[in-house]
Design a protein around this nucleic acid. Structure first.
Lengths: 99, 99
DNA sequence: AAGATATATCGGCTTTTTCCGATATTCCAA
DNA sequence: TTGGAATATCGGAAAAAGCCGATATATCTT
C-alpha cells in the first residue's frame, strides 16, 4: 500500500469523478444495466461519459488500479473496472490513525 | 475544501513525513520543549530535520496550509505550524462516505 | 540605526504529470 | 481468416511539481 501512489491517483479531478461514478454504477451507467454490474463498468462507458480520449481513460483506470483503488476484470473484449471498497475503508482508517 | 488540492498536498513523501512528525512534536522535536507546542513547531526545526532546503520546507508548509491540513501562527520571528486534526477527521470521513 | 535571525518569495533547472493522436494487441463474429 | 470492436501501449508536447540558491521581508537585539 504505497501512500504516495494512492494520493497521487486521487489528486486529479477526472479520476475522482470516475471513482464517484463507480460508486453508483446503476445510476451513472444505466445503459449497461442488461450486463449487470458485478464486475464493474467497462472502459468505453467511462470514456464516453468523461469526454476524455480512450487512451487517457484507459491510463487513468490503470493508475487507479496500480494504487489499489479499483480492480479490473477482463471478459471477452471488455475490461470491467470496479471500486475496491476495502481499499477506501483502509485509507480512511489510515488517515484517522496513522497519517 | 478542495479535494484535489488536499490529495496533491498529501502525494509527496517529504510532506507526509512532516505531517507525521507534527503528530507527535514532543517526541520528534524535543529541542523545542522549552517553548511548548501549543502553537506547533517552527519552520527551522522542520528544516533541520528534513534535510531539505529552508525554501523548500517553507513552500511545503505553505502548501499544506493551503490544503487546510495545518495551521500557522506567527510569533515574533517564528512561524509555528501545527496539524489541523479536524481536517484529517473530515478527510477520513469524506473518504469513507463521499469519494 | 545596523546587524543578526527566521521565514517567505523568486527565478530557474529538472523531473513528473497531463492529455493527446497514432498504433498495437486482443478477442469476437461472419 | 478477415474485419471490426474494445482496450492497451507508445511517443510526444505542454503544464505542473520538485527542489534548489539567491534574495527579500519581518522581527528582534544592541
Amino acid at each position: 500500500m504505497d501512500q504516495v501512489e494512492i494520493f497521487k491517483a486521487l489528486s486529479n479531478k477526472a479520476r475522482l469523478q470516475i471513482l464517484h461514478w463507480l460508486k453508483d454504477p446503476e445510476y451513472h451507467f444505466p445503459e449497461q444495466k442488461e450486463n449487470g454490474f458485478e464486475h464493474g463498468v467497462c472502459v468505453g462507458q467511462i470514456h464516453q461519459k468523461s469526454g476524455l480520449t480512450q487512451s487517457t481513460v484507459s491510463e487513468y483506470l490503470t493508475s487507479l488500479q496500480r494504487a489499489g483503488l479499483v480492480t479490473s476484470t477482463r471478459a471477452g473484449q471488455w475490461t470491467y473496472y470496479k471500486r475496491n471498497e476495502e481499499a477506501f475503508a483502509a485509507l480512511s482508517e489510515l488517515i484517522q490513525k496513522e497519517i
